[in-house]
Computed example of a mutant assay.
Amino acid sequence: MIDGLDVDIAAGEFVALLGKSGCGKTTLLRTLAGLDQADAGTVDVPAQRAVVFQEHRLLPWERVWRNVAIGLPRAEGRQKAAAALEEVGLTSHLGAWPITLSGGEAQRVALARALVREPRLLLLDEPFAALDALTRIKMHELVRELVARHRPAVLLVTHDVDEAITLADRVLVMRAGEIAAEHRIHLKGARSRADGDFLALREALLAELGVLPEPGALAAAVT
């Protein structure tokens, strides 16, 4: 259940949403996507919005380009799908069947399907969770490039603290349907776990999620 929630995302801003299972993250995303209706309050979202889920949700009976162009007029669909697939590095897979794709390739097709609609709001529901570590890193780099190029407002729902710090301009922590904490990312250059500021923010977020004790709590307990 969401209670008293107020979230604004600017055009071109990348916001990551962290929180324990059941805190309301998915409810918020589905409400913004128009898949669920809010019981009260105001939901102001652009008409041009798209969602990428954890599962790629490709239609196995349609070729890749048709999956990307779903809902578009056939006359222009193939051309737009080809351009979107080129952006995600899958030009050669235009006529492939989904069953022939790897997990990472399938998620890139799902990303192309979202971007072909030129959304002003891009909603990402743990889209990298099922990928192996190396593929996830590549997808992070691709998403950063595409967001910088297209400049949609982005909301990423994730359980991965490192992923949130790596990708986002701002990280929100949700607890019991409310935003319990907010952090703006001010890290310079490449974001690396070897960076002291990265590690400090990681520990703060893990503490707010209840994974680590709050800073100073251990010292107080020992004293």
Rank of each mutant, 00 (worst) to 15 (best):
D3Y: 08
D3W: 05
G4K: 00
D6F: 02
D8V: 15
D8A: 15
D8F: 13
I9S: 05
I9V: 13
I9R: 08
A11G: 13
G12K: 10
A16R: 09
A16T: 00
L18N: 13
G19E: 02
S21Q: 04
S21R: 06
G24K: 06
K25I: 08
R30I: 09
R30C: 07
A33V: 07
D36R: 01
A38F: 05
A38L: 02
A38K: 07
G41F: 06
T42R: 12
V43N: 09
V43T: 10
V45D: 05
V45H: 03
P46H: 06
Q48D: 15
R49I: 08
Q54T: 14
E55D: 15
H56M: 10
L59K: 05
W61I: 09
E62A: 12
R66N: 04
R74G: 04
K80C: 05
A81L: 07
A81E: 07
A82K: 12
L85G: 11
E86H: 15
T91M: 05
S92H: 14
L94H: 00
P98F: 02
I99G: 14
I99Y: 14
L101N: 15
R108E: 08
V109S: 08
A110R: 13
L111A: 11
A112Q: 10
A112P: 14
R113Y: 10
A114D: 02
E118K: 13
R120T: 00
D125Y: 06
E126C: 02
E126W: 02
P127V: 07
P127L: 03
A130I: 09
L134E: 10
R136M: 08
I137Q: 14
I137F: 07
I137D: 12
H140I: 07
R144L: 13
V147T: 00
P152R: 02
L155E: 04
T158H: 02
E163D: 13
A164G: 11
T166V: 14
A168T: 14
V171H: 11
G177V: 10
I179N: 09
A180R: 10
A180Q: 13
E182S: 15
I185T: 12
I185C: 09
H186T: 15
L187M: 01
G189P: 02
G189Q: 09
A190G: 00
R193L: 12
R193W: 05
F198E: 09
A200K: 14
L201G: 06
E203W: 01
A207F: 02
E208T: 07
E208H: 11
L209W: 05
L209E: 04
E214C: 01
L218S: 07
L218G: 07
A220Y: 03
V222A: 13
